[in-house]
Computed example of a mutant assay.
Amino acid sequence: MKESTQQERELPLALRAAYMALHRNTEAAFAQHGVTADQFVLLLALSEGQALTQRELADRISSDPSTVRAMLVLLEKMELIQRASHPTDSRAKTVALTASGRRKLRKLWKAGQSIRDEMYGCMTPDEADTLIRQLRNITSTLNQEKSLV
């Protein structure tokens, strides 16, 4: 096994710590709204308006289809999303926000604003753009590596 550098050891720990801090703060902010941080991400992914298949949604939020399906069942019971048969693929379902889902998402967006303000407050807009680009590069690279296995 090759000798690792301090930086190689710190990056996974730093990524995990940042994610967990964001997740904990978001869970606390959304608790009174009856929605989890993960459900918020799913609602946000649907906010662009077009219906997505469950597979497209899982890909968009970097989750596995069974986890997405479980979240969709709960969100459908809450009448925040609606699932329908896909127009051309009888095996697939499409998912879209309901009017109630759009209203809930607006409330959640407001409830999470202070978290986003804190997050962006510790970096310049250029640093935020760089961070987003780098995180996307990491995701893309690791997803390519995974598909080669």
Rank of each mutant, 00 (worst) to 15 (best):
R24G: 02
A128P: 00
A31F: 03
A18F: 06
Q113A: 15
A29R: 13
T141F: 13
S147G: 13
L142N: 07
N25M: 06
T130N: 07
G101M: 02
R116P: 00
A18L: 13
T36A: 11
L72N: 02
T26Y: 01
P12W: 03
Q6E: 13
L75G: 02
K146H: 10
R60T: 14
G121E: 08
R91K: 15
G101P: 03
D38E: 13
R133V: 03
M71H: 13
L74I: 00
H33K: 11
L80P: 00
D126M: 12
L131Y: 11
H23Q: 10
L97F: 08
H33I: 03
E3N: 07
L148I: 10
D129Y: 06
L11F: 08
D117F: 05
T139G: 09
D38I: 02
Q54D: 03
L72P: 05
L11A: 06
G112Y: 06
T139N: 09
D38R: 13
K107N: 12
Y19L: 05
E127C: 10
L72A: 05
L148Q: 10
L44R: 12
D117Q: 12
E48M: 05
M119F: 11
G49N: 01
Q7A: 14
K2H: 07
S114Y: 07
A84C: 06
L72G: 04
S100A: 12
Q7E: 11
L80I: 00
L135I: 12
N137A: 14
P65L: 08
T141G: 04
R102V: 00
N137C: 06
D129N: 11
V149T: 08
E10C: 02
S100W: 01
L46T: 07
L105P: 00
S147D: 14
A58K: 00
A31Y: 02
A70F: 05
S114P: 01
Q134R: 15
T5V: 07
R16Q: 08
L80F: 02
R106L: 04
R55D: 09
T94P: 02
T26Q: 11
L105Q: 03
K107A: 13
D89P: 02
R102A: 11
L11V: 14
R106S: 08
Y120E: 11
L131F: 13
E145G: 04
L108Q: 02
Q54C: 06
A37R: 05
K110F: 07
V73T: 14
A18S: 14
L15E: 06
M78L: 14
D59L: 12
A58S: 14
M20L: 13
Q144E: 15
